[in-house]
Amino acid sequence: MSAPTDRSVRPALTRLGRVEARKMIDTRAALWLLILTALSAVAAVLVGVLFDDASRDFGETFVDAMLAVSVLLPIVPILLVTGEWSQRTALGTFALVPIRERVMAAKLLALVALLAAVTLLCLGLAALGAAISGDGLGFSGAEAGDVILFELLTLLFGFGIAAVLMNSPAAIVLNFVVPIVVGAIAAISAGVESVVSWVDPSAWSALTDSTAAEWDKIATAALAWVVLPIAAGLVRLRRRDIA
């Protein structure tokens, strides 16, 4: 906890970001979610080390761990946003920080901190895995950067849906259903696919495997599923009556 401040000074965004990061871990539900997420990384590394006969190096194990956590991890920022509404803490939060965009900016900072912590965890687990298996320490900085970007987009995808919906169950369900539905629509025909592929978040998956990343499609999908939802969520938040 940091030192007290002058009462007539607006709380710094970094301070608010620390508060939001704390909110991600200080409830029972959040703690269990983080434990499950960490366990999924541990499991991914263990499975790779114990059962995969193909020799894998440190870098590959890191990617596996990051992919494993990407399933549950978005629920953390989702609940950080929607919890304000489902638990009605918004009333207190926005009374303390009446400029509502600052709260959302602080939550984004917390999301980045979460990404940093998870990346460190996965690096540590991958190192441990390499030590146990005696596999190589091969590591590609570019691949690591790609998977971190994938993880960031995955987290922001959940964050954006949460920002628009402001409802925990709906946001969690859509977080899992949207990629499936978009994929199903794309599968209707090649013609449809050529259009839908521009807004298909599965374009981000190319960042985690050996397929060539289509950066233009990664960018348009990010515009559709990250930038637009967050912008719409901010507009809705500005206008909303908080009760």
Binding site: M1, S2, A3, P4, T5, D6, R7, V9, P11, R15, L16, R18, V19, R22, K23, D26, T27, R28, A29, A30, G83, Q87, R88, T89, A90, L91, G92, A95, L96, V97
Partner: peptide, 24 residues
């Protein structure tokens, strides 16, 4: 504005710590 509007899964002292930290 509403004493009930607190996260049910957070400890009482923790909610106050969050508040103190937010406002410095």
């Amino acid at each position: 504005l509403d004493a009930s509007a607190q996260h049910s899964g957070r400890r009482g002292r923790e909610t106050l710590r969050l508040c103190a930290e937010t406002i410095g």
